[in-house]
Simulated assay, not measured.
Amino acid sequence: MDLLDRIFLSLKTQGKVWGRVTLGGRYGLAFPKQHAVFIAVMAGNCLINQDEGPLIALNEGDFLFFPAASRFHLRSNAEVAFTTPLTALQLATWQETSILEYQENTVAGVSLVVGCFTLISAEAPLLFQELPSVLHMSANEADILSRQVREMMRDEIASREPGASPTIDRLAEILMIRTIRRAVRDNAWIGGSGWLRALSDARIHRSLQLMHDDLSLIWTVSRLAQAVGMSRSAFADRFRRLVGVTPMAHLTRWRMAFAADLLRSDRKMKIESIASKVGYLSERAFREAFLKTYSCSPNKYRKT
């Protein structure tokens, strides 16, 4: 199985649409800080920025995703210098009705679907923290399937039939995955390091694939280097330069995340068995590594 396919399957993210936002006239609104916010533009256009980031033009058919926790601001145009936080009444109305409307005058504005992704698995943050601060798939850049998914989302919103809300949530997840995949394919990062960026290097990609294919194997730097046809020193140097950490540090991080998910998904599995599944012959060594990663014991993590 391809590395990204494996990681997407393990994400266990859950899309949750907060509701529709319809804005018109002249406006500048600041939304509260949330994690992994997504915005789909159903009609019209507006400007958006994340915290103090640059303004981004959003147009009908666009899909935008902020992987990290952040505030975002919506403006009718660049002449609006300041944004006003949503009032408690506006937030309460939005939560109760799933509809937020702000119409200063009769000038047509923008219609959005806004929501967020909840990260359920311990592995999901290891992907999200690698992503750019903003992922923006414009209507012009989207492929046919992505456009069809957005049209399905529009139809579900208009239908208001039973089951529309969870359907929209799932459609948002599809758009999120396709947006991430497009960023990886187009190598959307400039400079920096990280395992997702390193997928563009064939040999490092292969080494990452080998690790993730079987976390239970007793991997060493020498064994990985040999598997990808490199000397140990050359492989270790290239891996650290591209990924940002040593091969063993990367492996440990993902082993611990997988173990954390096992602790909560199968509460009857013995710690010794979990340790074996993530490549530890010694339960004690596994417990020490887990404590170092999560600042608590496996047993305590399982109970939380």
Rank of each mutant, 00 (worst) to 15 (best):
K12G: 15
L29H: 04
A30H: 07
Q34D: 10
N49W: 01
D51K: 05
G53H: 05
F63I: 09
A68E: 13
A69M: 12
R71H: 14
P85Y: 01
L89V: 10
T93Y: 02
E101G: 03
N105M: 04
L112N: 04
G115R: 07
I120A: 14
A122G: 08
P132R: 11
Q148D: 15
R150F: 14
E151L: 15
M152S: 14
R160F: 05
R170Q: 08
E173R: 02
E173I: 01
M176K: 04
I177R: 14
R178P: 07
R181M: 08
R185M: 06
D186K: 06
I190P: 00
G192N: 06
W195R: 01
W195T: 00
R197F: 05
R203S: 12
I204W: 04
S207K: 00
L210D: 00
D214E: 02
L215T: 04
S216E: 05
S216T: 03
I218T: 13
T220D: 02
M230L: 03
G244V: 02
G244A: 04
T246V: 13
T246C: 13
T246N: 09
P247A: 11
H250D: 03
H250T: 05
H250A: 06
W254Y: 14
A257T: 07
D261P: 09
R267T: 15
R267D: 07
M269F: 05
S273L: 10
S273M: 08
F286W: 04
E288V: 15
E288F: 08
F290V: 10
L291M: 14
L291K: 12
Y294K: 10
Y294G: 13
P298D: 06
K303T: 15
